[in-house]
């Protein structure tokens, strides 16, 4: 059984308004690393909120590890299983001191003190922020704040973390830090990672990309598969990596080029072979 399963999900903020999510069926397997890609306002952030149950679908249902996200009685179980990291690093830190903030979720769960301490220490170690445990949160860099937010979610020991444009407000250094953290969570700790983004560089790192447009899923596959559809992505105002686009442009001019090349090194390899012939 899939870890997250959405069946015929529709959503509108009010009955008069148009559907933001317009019939989505998707399964996300346990331990997978999925990127949801789409332009601003395509409904991807709403989908994230639906998946972790902050908002309930107007139509259809979403099951997270068998729990219906509308089931109020199992709300706690749901939250523990599936955490969410938001876009603005400033607006999700609750406490002024790093370790107090990371402890927030386990405190809410009513865990014994020793257990909280253990979880806080290990969560901070995972995001490489142990030395900042006693620091005040507001003086940290954007990337560091986001790592604290991740640690705060990790302390619940969730099976899945959803990143809702968690890198959009960061500089390139911060973005790299968070991308590295996501990868580590997925590959080393086996946590299911769902990242919502419009940065190509981040989507490439995932094992699977889901492309959204106007509340619908329009493509679903591995990064190489998705980025080989250059025209289709351009139609929904998304870009592809520069080298992918270069090879595509050459292809349009009649050269035989492979599709789905995403990295500069791979492109160099392809061109080397062509040029040496």
């Amino acid at each position: 059984m899939a870890f997250i399963e959405a069946r015929g999900v529709e959503f509108a903020y009010s009955p008069e308004e148009p559907l933001v999510i317009d019939g989505i069926d998707v399964k996300i397997e346990k331990g997978s690393y999925v990127a949801i890609l789409g332009h601003n306002g395509c409904g991807k952030s709403t989908l994230a909120k639906l998946l972790c149950g902050i908002v309930a679908p107007t139509e259809g249902q979403i099951l997270v590890d068998g729990i219906n996200t509308c089931d109020g009685e199992q709300e706690f179980e749901l939250r523990k299983k599936c955490g969410m990291v938001f876009q603005n690093p400033d607006n999700q830190l609750v406490a002024s001191v790093v370790e107090e903030d990371v402890a927030f979720a386990p405190e809410n769960l009513g865990l014994p003190r020793e257990e909280i301490r253990k979880r806080v220490d290990s969560a901070l170690a995972t995001v490489d922020m142990s030395e900042y445990a006693k620091h005040t949160t507001h003086k940290l860099s954007g990337g560091q704040k986001q790592r604290i937010a991740i640690a705060g979610i990790l302390a619940m020991q969730p099976e899945c973390i959803i990143f809702d444009e968690a890198t959009a407000m960061l500089d390139p250094t911060g973005r790299k830090e968070i991308a590295a953290a996501m990868k580590r969570l997925n590959k080393e700790l086996g946590i299911t990672v769902v990242t919502i983004t419009h940065y190509m560089g981040e989507a490439i790192e995932a094992d699977r990309i889901i492309v959204m447009n106007q509340g619908k899923i329009i493509a679903d596959g591995t990064p190489a598969e998705i980025f080989s559809k250059v025209e289709q992505l351009k139609e929904v105002s998304l870009a592809v990596p520069q080298v992918t686009e270069l090879l595509y442009m050459l292809e349009c001019d009649g050269y035989q080029m492979p599709r789905g090349i995403l990295h500069a090194m791979d492109a160099a390899e392809v061109l080397t072979q062509k040029l040496k012939k």
Partner: peptide, 15 residues
């Protein structure tokens, strides 16, 4: 830019 990286690599390979 990524495209510059590609050409740096191609230059390294003498192409």
């Amino acid at each position: 830019p990524q495209i510059t990286k590609l050409f740096i690599e191609l230059k390294k390979r003498g192409l």
